[in-house]
């Protein structure tokens, strides 16, 4: 029964399974299991710091508490997250695209400047957050420029400006990602249609608008989706810079989850919020995958 042929046959039959087994195991341990734990925890009232044996089954109460008014900051936080994501993603996209186009226009030294622009991306967000917290103080660096240019000083730590300040800091950190990707994409575009347009007398703006950007479309879409996912779950920079405050001015979803789960010690409600965030990210991911499929087909 257990002849060498049997094993060879088995190996041949299950070869693909054996190959993907390490990846599947890793995903099971690092993704599926914690996800399952979160789902389980969401049905329990479990105080952070107490043993699991003390957790009490409460059914859908945590869901009700989060979505139907118990958590009075949930919808505020969701709204802030949407505004923050739009500001951050669009802001860094336009800054990144603008700088990448400028770099592409440089006759030489584009790569050198790109390395220079990458610096914010390699700085740890926690360190960058502390740095920007200092820059945004009333007598800080940002107000020095604002005062020089506009003769006014802004209280960046007020409820009106805190989210704008946070978005500016995040644009500084995330724009290099767009610079890097768009610069690489622009330099590798086929030159013949561009040269043909130039011969036909098209201006540089027309070339960018009608030739380069349409060719960059798949890349633009993928980078936007990737950044949106990152922005949705960003925690480190908002936490270090404003800690969700003042008031609830910068309490984005990830900060809110942290407060509910670890400061208010309600792990059940925290899990509900985490699952909600995961759902948002999954929706974004499915959009990304569909778009990628489309671009592969075309």
């Amino acid at each position: 029964m257990f002849s060498p042929n049997f094993f060879t046959h088995l190996l041949k039959k299950y070869y693909p399974v054996i190959l993907v087994l390490p990846a599947i195991t890793t995903v099971l341990i690092l993704v599926i299991y914690p996800l399952f734990m979160s789902l389980q925890t969401s049905f329990f009232k479990w105080t952070y710091g107490t043993p699991w044996s003390q957790a009490e089954y409460v059914g859908l109460k945590n869901y009700y508490w989060v979505f139907f008014g118990g958590d009075y900051l949930f919808y505020v936080s969701l709204q802030l997250t949407v505004v923050y994501v739009i500001f951050q993603v669009l802001g860094s996209f336009f800054v990144g695209l603008f700088i990448a186009v400028l770099l592409d226009k440089l006759p030489r030294g584009g790569s050198l400047f790109t390395s220079f622009f990458i610096i914010p991306m390699v700085i740890m967000p926690a360190v960058a957050g502390l740095m920007w917290r200092l820059y945004f103080t009333y007598d800080g660096l940002v107000n020095y420029f604002v005062e020089t240019l506009f003769r006014i000083k802004i209280n960046w730590f007020s409820t009106e400006y805190a989210l704008i300040a946070l978005s500016l800091a995040s644009i500084w950190i995330t724009a290099p990602f767009f610079i890097l990707v768009f610069y690489a994409a622009l330099t590798s575009l086929p030159q013949s249609p561009i040269e043909a347009a130039r011969v036909d007398g098209a201006s540089e703006l027309t070339i960018l608008k009608d030739i380069k950007l349409p060719m960059l479309k798949p890349i633009i879409f993928v980078t936007l989706i990737l950044r949106t996912i990152e922005a949705l779950r960003s925690f480190d920079l908002p936490y270090v810079t404003f800690g969700g405050g003042p008031g609830s001015a910068t309490e984005v979803l990830a900060i809110h989850i942290n407060r509910i789960a670890f400061q208010f010690r309600q792990l059940g409600a925290g899990s509900v919020l985490s699952l909600f965030l995961i759902l948002l990210v999954v929706i974004m991911c499915s959009l990304l995958i569909n778009k990628l499929k489309e671009s592969w087909v075309t």
Partner: peptide, 12 residues
């Protein structure tokens, strides 16, 4: 208090 006091931790 000074502008920004709403976010003052003890260091500030």
């Amino acid at each position: 208090g000074p502008p920004g006091i709403e976010a003052f931790s003890f260091e500030e």
